[in-house]
Simulated assay, not measured.
Amino acid sequence: MIDLDTAHRALVFVSLVVSLCSAAYAFFATRRKDVDRRFDEGSKRMDRHDLRLQAVEQAIQTMPGKDDMHRLELHLSEMSGDMKAMSATMMAMAESQTRTERIVSRHEDHLRGTT
């Protein structure tokens, strides 16, 4: 038969084993939950990065390229040349207008007889 002392030792040993097993289970179960939570957060973060990357790619696709910028530079140079030619024409017209005003003024003075 089993004496009381042996039964007590067996019961202490069984309770120790059960408590160690429950502690190990709790450790791995909570660790798994933490890993799952971190995995979900990482997955959501990667989804946000993917959306941001798609937005950047779309923005870059709509931006002008080097050929577009070169064409724009050529058009601006052409417009600058046209503006210089218009400026020269305007100056010539202003001088012509000044001469015409002088002539008309002399005619008016002559007609008024205030020479």
Score class of each variant (00 low, 15 high):
Arg32Thr: 13
Phe39Val: 08
Gln97Lys: 12
Met86His: 08
Ile103Ala: 06
Asp34Trp: 08
Ser96Trp: 06
Arg102Asp: 12
Met69Val: 03
Ala23Asn: 00
Thr98Ile: 03
Thr62Ile: 15
Gly65Gln: 01
Glu78Thr: 05
Leu74Gln: 15
Arg52Gly: 05
Ser87Phe: 01
Glu95Ile: 04
Ala85Leu: 08
Ile60Ala: 07
Met1Gly: 03
Val17Cys: 02
Asp40Ser: 04
Thr62Cys: 10
Met90Glu: 11
Ser15Thr: 10
Gly113Thr: 01
Leu53Asp: 07
Ile60Cys: 03
Arg48Gln: 08
Thr115Ser: 12
Asp67Pro: 00
Gly81Pro: 00
Val18Met: 06
Val14Glu: 14
Glu108Pro: 01
Phe27Leu: 11
His70Thr: 12
Arg52Ala: 15
Pro64Glu: 03
Ser15Cys: 12
Thr62Tyr: 08
Arg45Asp: 13
Met46Ser: 05
Gly113Val: 08
His70Ala: 11
Lys33Met: 10
Glu73Asp: 07
Met63Gly: 00
Arg71Ser: 11
Glu73Gln: 10
Met79Asn: 15
Val35Leu: 14
Gly81Asp: 13
Thr62Ser: 13
Lys66Ala: 13
Thr89Asp: 11
Thr100Arg: 05
Leu11His: 03
Ala10Tyr: 00
Gly81Glu: 12
Arg48Ile: 08
Ala23Cys: 09
Arg99Phe: 07
Arg106Ala: 14
Ala26Ile: 09
Glu41Pro: 00
Leu51Gln: 09
Ser22Phe: 10
Arg106Phe: 08
Arg71Tyr: 03
Leu74Arg: 13
Arg9Leu: 06
Val14Asn: 05
Arg32Val: 02
Met1Lys: 07
Arg71Gln: 10
Leu51Gly: 10
Ala92Asn: 12
Asp68Leu: 08
Asp47His: 06
Leu11Asp: 09
Asp5Ser: 11
Leu51Val: 04
Val56Ala: 04
Asp3Glu: 05
Asp82Asn: 11
Met86Val: 11
Ser105Ala: 13
Cys21His: 01
Glu101Lys: 05
Asp47Phe: 00
Leu51Cys: 02
Asp40Asn: 11
His107Met: 15
Arg48Lys: 13
Gly113His: 02
Arg71Phe: 05
Glu108His: 04
Thr115Val: 09
Ala85Ser: 15
Met1Glu: 02
Met90Thr: 09
Lys44Leu: 15
Leu72Ala: 15
Glu95Trp: 00
Gln61Thr: 13
Ala88Asp: 09
Val14Arg: 12
Glu78Cys: 04
Val12Tyr: 04
